[in-house]
Design a protein around this nucleic acid. Structure first.
Length: 228
DNA sequence: CCATTAATATATA
DNA sequence: TATATATTAATGG
């Protein structure tokens, strides 16, 4: 039975390569504490960084000090440092206390030969990542900042919202700062948007949950705030 | 730590 | 030039 390649909205929980954890004896396992660098900017390790527990962030750095969060690697996913690009500084940071397994290209390809399912899942993971970044570039080009945030909230509600007593609940731990990093919208602007949505009784957010009171109004706002 | 608000600057249609 | 968004700084939960 073929699974569909899900459409990812947030840059985490990419397609898991679960069976790779059966082969960690072939790699190198290490623990990192929260905040610790796993791969330093410019460091060449030629390995994949597979997450067993915890969470990593993968950040791209520019010469002028600016940086952009690219994605989070949650358990059973990986940060790929097999094929480093020239002039591109990547910083991999442990966002939580994390246990990581490093695999070299040789080790990984040996596993692929032994277990085609791992190879299949590995490629599917790449595909889901690729889908996310294609979506992100589309959003950046087609929509202005506020509309991007509204569209993100709307799609989160459609894909993971659970209907509870006349409202939708999205069980997700997502700070305003995280939304800011994901959408490229300034955190003060994010705060203002949430303030407005709450005032208008459209939606409100707590630490672990987003509650959508008026999904229709949210959809209308997307059009109202869009420029033609 | 994370979120809010105000004042001001910059960017964009 | 009007509006949207970013920046900075100050403050509160």
């Amino acid at each position: 039975m073929e699974k569909t390649n899900s459409y990812y909205i947030l840059p985490n929980n990419f397609y898991p390569v679960k069976k790779l954890q059966n082969y960690i004896h072939m790699g190198v396992v290490r623990n990192y504490s929260k905040g610790q660098s796993v791969v330093l900017p410019g460091e060449l390790i030629y390995k994949i960084v597979y997450v067993l527990s915890g969470r990593l962030s993968i950040n791209f750095l520019n010469e002028d000090g600016r940086q952009k969060l690219m994605y989070y690697a949650d358990p059973n996913t990986y940060a790929d440092r097999l094929f480093p690009f020239d002039e591109c500084y990547v910083h991999v940071i442990a966002e939580e206390n994390s246990t990581i397994c490093f695999f070299s290209k040789e080790e990984l390809f040996e596993i692929f030969q032994q277990d085609k399912e791992v190879l299949s899942d590995f490629i599917t993971n790449y595909s889901s990542k690729c889908g996310y970044f294609m979506r992100e570039s589309k959003e950046m080009i087609l929509y202005n900042p506020s509309v991007r945030v509204l569209r993100l909230l709307y799609e989160l509600c459609l894909t993971q919202g659970k209907s509870v007593d006349d409202v939708y609940q999205i069980d997700i731990k997502l700070s305003q700062k995280a939304i800011s990093e994901i959408t490229g919208v300034h955190f003060v602007t994010i705060s203002r948007i949430f303030g407005f949505l709450k005032k208008e009784n459209i939606l409100y957010k707590t630490t672990s949950k987003i509650t959508v009171i008026d999904l229709e109004r949210l959809k209308e706002l997307v059009n109202e705030w869009m420029e033609f």
